[in-house]
Design a binder for these strands. Structure first.
Length: 317
DNA sequence: CAAATTTGACCCGA
DNA sequence: TCGGGTCAAATTTG
């Protein structure tokens, strides 16, 4: 739109690019622990700068106050605010139809899985599938998940996952409700051991023994996982880099990254950028692109004014 | 054997 | 009546 914005976006992209380059360096050269720390700090700094820029870009057009659709009570604990999904955005509701008492779908995320064969839709929470349905007009069935802790902790979060017709590698995910489970709440508080680490699907992200793995391990993870999908940036640099690809089977490092707190609106954006990075457990690759709105991943965002760098670094090391 | 997934039936709003 | 969302019994998996 306006030149200033473009400029800022470019700056942000530049910062992100720098961060990526440094990340690459990190993966390529053997470094002393000090040097690695330095690089990591620089990487974080770059992302932080980008985040800051994007955030400031975002302020001119504050999120429209949506006509709050009737959410089903579900809110209980004010304390778990950070897991609250923000209100909907103006995206067309994928599922306008809802049963009595069900909430509107509050967030939509599009995930492109690397090979398109697997459901790499891990988002850090532990989900249990409770249904599958063929949807008229859709090639692929829609899968319904609810939080694994829905019973134990009365967590009301649910999500729908559907493979895109035109691109089987793409999953459209709709989130509903907010996580009120402890698991989610841990993103902002000291880790607790999950009730019972379930099998594969998600190793709960924020949580799960945050006991920092040893740096070497983290580094090797980083090394193994990092790769950047820049095709997206190619001819279209004006646009925010909506996606990165970090083929990854992530674990330690990625989980630690969950501690990274992104304040405010662009959190999501940044989260999109970083999530593959952070993608827990079983994710192999992928990038997130967001469509529709934001915030579903707010649960990652911690205290709005925390300094991401220091916070992150602290938890990281 | 417990927990997760599958799948057909049921419910409900449009 | 149709289609989407959920339930719950059966089945599978670890």
């Amino acid at each position: 739109m306006d030149g200033a914005c473009v400029y800022d976006e470019k700056t942000a992209i530049h910062e992100l690019t720098q961060g990526l380059q440094m990340a690459k360096q990190l993966t390529v050269h053997p470094h002393s622990p000090e040097a690695r720390d330095l690089l990591i700090q620089k990487i974080l700094s770059s992302y932080h700068n980008a985040h800051f820029i994007l955030q400031s870009l975002d302020t001119p057009h504050p999120a429209p106050a949506p006509p709050a659709p009737s959410l089903p009570e579900s809110s209980e604990s004010p304390g778990s605010k950070e897991f609250e999904f923000d209100q909907p955005f103006s995206i067309q509701n994928v599922s306008s139809r809802k049963r009595k008492g069900s909430a509107t779908w509050e967030d939509h995320v599009r995930i492109c899985s690397g090979n398109g064969l697997e459901d790499n839709t891990d988002d850090g929470f532990s989900w249990r599938k409770y249904g599958q349905k063929d949807i008229s007009g859709a090639k692929f069935p829609r899968n319904y998940y609810r939080c694994s802790y829905s019973k134990e902790q009365k967590c009301l979060a649910t999500k729908q996952v559907q493979r895109a017709d035109d691109d089987p590698a793409v999953f459209d995910i709709a989130y509903k409700g907010k996580h009120t489970c402890k698991l989610g709440a841990q993103s902002a508080s000291p880790p607790l051991p999950p009730p019972s680490p379930k099998k594969n699907e998600i190793t709960p992200p924020y949580h799960h023994q945050l006991s920092p793995p040893n740096p070497d391990e983290m580094l090797s993870n980083l090394r193994a996982n990092l790769s950047v999908d820049t095709s997206d940036l190619g001819g279209d640099i004006e646009n925010l880099p909506s996606s990165f690809s970090f083929p990854s089977t992530s674990s330690g490092l990625m989980e630690d990254l969950h501690q990274f707190h992104f304040p405010n609106h662009y959190d999501d954006e940044l989260w999109q950028v970083c999530s593959p990075f952070i993608s827990p457990a079983t994710s192999k690759s992928n990038f997130f692109t967001e469509w529709g709105s934001s915030s579903s991943l707010d649960f990652l965002a911690g205290p709005a004014d925390a300094n991401p760098n220091s916070e992150f670094m602290n938890s990281f090391f």
